[in-house]
Amino acid sequence: MSNNNDYWKENVSLLLKLLAVWFVVSFGMGIILADYLDQFQFFGFPLGFWMSQQGSIYVFVALIFIYVRKMNKLDKKYNVDEEEEQ
């Protein structure tokens, strides 16, 4: 049982880190700081506008794939991954 508890704790701490990034790129840079960031030019875009209409979405995709990789490793580490089909 304590194995499972440690697994769960590591899982939750990974989630919190990823969700912090999720929050910063969308609500942080795409909404709260958008007006401030708009003074910077990013190619042909104002930066805040780009974050809210493009950048945040790319980061969302990356976050899920990072999560998939890290969780697969974590499953193996605590030996709780699903056994291969016989």
Partner: peptide
Amino acid sequence: WTGGYVLLALL
């Protein structure tokens, strides 16, 4: 409509 998938996948 995209950020919701992060919540869905993680939580």
